[in-house]
Design a protein around this nucleic acid. Structure first.
Lengths: 122, 122
DNA sequence: CAGCATCCCAGACGATACTG
DNA sequence: CAGTATCGTCTGGGATGCTG
């Protein structure tokens, strides 16, 4: 390894956000308002409960979001960004900008990726 | 979607660097010196030819690296970052910093991830 | 409402052998 | 040297149904 900047923490960071629905979840939570499980599920088209739960658990274990259970009936569970999660979301801006350029340069053949937009980030 | 910052280009960007050996390759190329196929293979422990080739092809199609073939015998092929690739690597710094904090907060149970370090980023 | 339990599959990744 | 070609494996994600 020549460039220490690219050492393990970067791999960790990328893995932490690499789940198929994680950016969707982070986008939902990025307004700072806690969201209920049902809300996340409702607006996530084609997102199944098993997958939503697994993505939430992973984000929680990675300290990016936190889960708050209200002892009520019917049950209520809310998810929100942690401090670490807020920092992470702030970092996304330059990466987003890079993505804009990246898409600009892409040929029409690659637009098959667009199906992901509808699915993940309506 | 509430936060447009998290729209599709970010998903694209994350997908572009999500291959298992892509950060390794980018780290190797980030010193600006072109690298030969054999060099990339040699220092990448457990990295097979098929996988190395596939990762290189994907990075190339995404405009992050470029491939230069020298018409010689024996054959010589060099890979180097494109302008877009250099921009991308520059963006990694804050993400790397976030990863450092992220690792600091992690409990020992999670150190199983360390096997990835040896494997990917020696 | 917020989930867990099962079963299943495509695609990423790896091992091995071969080649212009 | 810089790859292809095959085959096998493993797991992230999906479909469906059930529950405290």
């Amino acid at each position: 390894m020549r460039n220490p900047k690219l050492h393990c923490p970067l791999t960790y960071a990328v893995k932490a956000i690499s789940g198929k629905w994680k950016l969707y979840i982070l986008s939902m939570l990025s307004d700072g308002q806690p969201k209920r499980y049902g809300e996340l599920k409702k607006t996530g088209e084609n997102l199944t409960e098993k997958v939503l739960t697994s993505q939430l658990r992973e984000l929680e274990q990675d300290g990016i979001i936190c889960r708050k259970v209200y002892p009520e009936v019917p049950p209520r569970v809310e998810y929100m960004l942690t401090e670490s999660g807020r920092k992470l979301c702030a970092i996304f801006e330059p990466l987003y900008e890079w993505g804009v350029d990246y898409m600009k340069d892409n040929k029409p053949e690659k637009l098959y990726l667009l199906k992901m937009d509808r699915q993940e980030l309506v």
